[in-house]
């Protein structure tokens, strides 16, 4: 419940403040968002599995974001930023799909 409220508060804050993304963060923000989404879906699934752990969630969330950003940064430095970003997005997307599938099985028994 708190999590949903916080998410809503963040969305409203983003709509209200309407900030612009600094150019330095431009390539990392989408990847970070996808990584965070992956962590959130994982958390939801873990909750449904009744193995949810606060600390684990927090750490996985932060480290997901950081690792994703780090990979993109590394890719940028190596000159393969675009491809590496695509790779990260693909991996995270696969994981999100898996988590959503697990959530679906939990909710609908199908």
């Amino acid at each position: 419940m708190i999590a949903v409220l916080a998410l809503l508060a963040g969305v409203l804050l983003g709509l209200w403040l309407d900030p612009t993304v600094p150019a330095a963060l431009q390539p990392y923000l989408p990847i970070a968002v996808v990584a965070a989404l992956d962590a959130v879906f994982g958390g939801v699934r873990a909750k449904l599995d009744r193995i949810f752990d606060d600390k684990q969630f927090v750490v996985s969330f932060i480290s997901n974001v950081l690792v994703a950003a780090l990979i993109v940064y590394l890719g940028d430095q190596l000159g393969v930023g675009g491809q590496l970003s695509t790779g990260v997005v693909v991996v995270l997307g696969v994981r999100i799909f898996g988590n959503v599938a697990a959530i679906r099985r939990h909710l609908f028994r199908a």
Partner: peptide, 16 residues
């Protein structure tokens, strides 16, 4: 912490 992180996520999501 979870709340803060999720708020941040929502914020960044909307911004992005």
């Amino acid at each position: 912490m979870i709340g803060v992180l999720l708020g941040l996520l929502g914020f960044t999501l909307v911004v992005q």
